[in-house]
Amino acid sequence: MLSGVFSLLMAGLFVTLDAVDVAFTEAAVGGGITTVLLLATISRTGETEKRNPAFPLIPLMIVISTGALLIYGTSDMPLFGDAIAPIHQHVSPLYLSEAQNKTGVPNVVTAILASYRGYDTLGEVTVIFSAGVGVLLLLGSKRRRDENAV
């Protein structure tokens, strides 16, 4: 339940950061699929967790020191919303200026996703395919395994 709320808040945040496509995906994936899968797993593994008596001091210290180091490191990063940051100088202006004329698709995100970075997306789809096959192999072959066992 909270996982769904978390994803929805993330989606709202992405909209304010101009990433409408990403917000869309996050809302559908996080609010829909992830929550259902998490609930399914929890219902099969039991709701209660064994309490850990010791206070987790060492993890807390590791986390705080890592976080402090990372925050120290951000002082060299470009400012938020800065239009001349290095990330905006490389290929993105090219994509923005020519995507519409070259592909006939006004949504630049779709144009990059499917056309400029087609290999990348092919790889991602392959990962999703393999994850699906992996889950099927792990959980879906109940009947066959029983036949072998007999």
């Binding site: 496509d21 869309f24 995906t25 559908a28 699929i33 698709v105 006004p106 949504n107 779709t110």
Partner: peptide, 17 residues
């Protein structure tokens, strides 16, 4: 998805949902 936000990834997930 070509004209507004959207595309294959979102559509697949929504359909599955």
């Amino acid at each position: 998805g070509d004209f507004g936000p959207g595309g294959g990834f979102q559509a697949g997930v929504i359909f599955a949902a």
